[in-house]
Every structure is written in C-alpha cells, then in structure tokens.
C-alpha cells in the first residue's frame, strides 16, 4: 500500500505526478490540496476557476483522464498519475477548437469567469453525446440521445453562469455538435 505517513497536526506532504495538457509534472503537495489549487497555485494554470470550492458551480471543470470533473472536489493526492486537460490545453498550436470558435461566434460568454469550465464541460458533452450516453433529458434512457437543445441544456447545467449566457452557450454547443 502506498502510504503518506502521519506527522501530528502539521501539514502532510506528498509527491505526485500529473500530466497536464500533455506535460508531465512532479509535484510536492499538501495532502489537503485540491486538484484545482494545485493547477492554479503550483502550476500557474489559472484557466480553471474557483467559483465556490464546493462542487456547486462548475467553474473549475477540467478533463480528468478524459472525463469532466469538478477539480475543486478532487484531492490532488488521490489522482497521482492522472492525465488532466484544462482550458489552456483545448486549443492546439493556437488554433481554436470548434467549441471555442462557436463560443465566440454566439457570444456564449460575458464576464468569462465560468467560460473555461463551460468549455471543458462542453468538450465532454460532445464526447458523451458521441458515445450515446443518456442524460436526465433523454426520454428513454435506453435509447440513443438526440442532441437537441433540451439535451444540451440539461448536460450543461452543472456549469452556472450568472451573467446568463446560457442561450449563447446552448447555440454554441449545438453548432459544435452538428459540425
């Protein structure tokens, strides 16, 4: 069993390896550190945002081993060896993804603070739809979902946007889903 030893009430340190946006990082962290704080404070990847730190807003959404998760609820120490993609890793060589282009085209953002989480989430939504996974909006969970607006809205509901850019977000995801 891999174990980090106890040392009274002092902070407990651990060593982990994370591959973030294709680069491997060996990191010494506090066991209490969230994946989000590790990305933001240790790696300087501030794209993923802290909106609530309790998994209630989705601004911290990243792709962890290919799936969207709330980085604020993930303890970094528990994801040693993981592959992480943040908003900084979506565009390749300065070329925007279809979703990034569609977000700009449909003005799917205002203050921009929830936008990185929206984009990581939307990236995963396209993947989930492509794999035929159902959502609460799928009338029959056994059937293939149709990527209509109701599906997109439900799937994007883990990402709050207080500016109210939802209409643009749905239009952008719809466009990217059909492209």
């Amino acid at each position: 069993m891999n174990s980090v030893p106890a040392d009274g009430p002092d902070p407990v340190r651990a060593e982990i390896t994370l591959t973030v946006n294709g680069s491997e990082h060996r990191l010494g962290i506090d066991t209490r550190a969230s994946l989000l704080d590790t990305l933001r404070e240790d790696l300087g990847l501030t794209g993923a945002k802290k909106g609530c730190d309790h998994g209630q807003c989705g601004a911290c959404t990243v792709l962890l081993d290919g799936r969207r998760v709330n980085a604020c609820l993930a303890l970094a120490v528990a994801h040693d060896g993981a592959d992480v993609v943040t908003v900084e890793g979506l565009a390749r060589d300065g070329r925007p993804t279809r979703l990034q282009e569609a977000f700009l085209a449909h003005d799917a953002l205002q203050c921009g603070y929830c936008t990185p989480g929206q984009l990581c989430s939307a990236t995963a939504v396209l993947d989930e739809l492509g794999r035929g996974l159902p959502s609460a909006a799928t009338p029959d969970p056994a059937a293939e979902p149709v990527p209509d607006d109701a599906e997109i809205r439900e799937r994007m509901s883990g990402n709050l946007c207080r500016c109210g850019a939802y209409a643009g977000i749905v239009a952008a995801v719809r466009e990217a889903a059909r492209a």
Binding site: G58, R68, V69, N70, S121, E128, S135, T138, P141, G158
Partner: peptide
C-alpha cells in the same frame, strides 16, 4: 433498470457524477 439510470442522471451534475 431504467428507474436506476433515471435516478442517477437526476442527481448532481455530469461533472460530479464522474467523480
């Protein structure tokens, strides 16, 4: 077991369900 799939999908968000 559609009721089980529906119950799970009704909970939390896609991100939380993945963790």
């Amino acid at each position: 077991f559609p009721l089980l799939a529906q119950a799970v999908l009704a909970g939390a968000s896609g991100q939380i369900r993945n963790l």
